[in-house]
């Protein structure tokens, strides 16, 4: 599909909006439907779309393997870090209301960071699975 001009132009138009929508789903998850899992899946879908149009090697230049692999672990570590931050400030594991002087602001802060962690891990895992599957096809 690399040489299909319609797909290339439409893809170039659409991908920024897909990514913007993913960010909206991520950051607006407190107020509307959505959250980390959905946002991570949408970002991964945008990258898969990009890889299908512009080729796998181009996509791997944008999102290299080391970055994807560290995203898989980084998201979980970020989540755990929020849990230990609550422990450090003086609450229980994964207590958010101790993260700020105002408990409600603390809750917001904790939810923001753990949703970010979920999004990073989900996006990394889905991209890694996609890379590994397509790469096997090219090796043979």
């Amino acid at each position: 599909m690399k040489n299909d001009i319609i797909l290339r132009v439409i893809g170039k138009l659409l991908i920024p909006f897909i990514l913007l929508f993913a960010l909206y789903v991520q950051l607006h998850g407190d107020y509307g439907p959505g959250g980390g899992f959905q946002a991570g899946a949408i970002i991964a879908a945008a990258m898969v779309f990009y890889a299908m149009i512009y080729g796998l090697s181009t996509a791997r230049r944008v999102f290299p393997d080391w970055l994807v692999e560290s995203m898989i672990a980084g998201g979980v570590l970020l989540y755990l870090a929020v849990g230990f931050a609550g422990l450090y400030v003086g609450g229980n594991f994964l207590d958010y209301f101790v993260l700020d002087a105002d408990p409600v602001t603390g809750q917001h802060r904790g939810i923001f960071w753990i949703e970010l962690g979920v999004a990073i891990t989900v996006c990394g895992v889905l991209l890694k699975i996609f890379y590994l599957f397509t790469q096997r096809g090219q090796d043979q």
Binding site: D30, H108, I114
Partner: peptide, 17 residues
Amino acid sequence: ETGVPNVVTAVLASYRG
């Protein structure tokens, strides 16, 4: 308690963290 209007997110991320 959480200041989050979306109950799904509140339960998922806070109560059931």
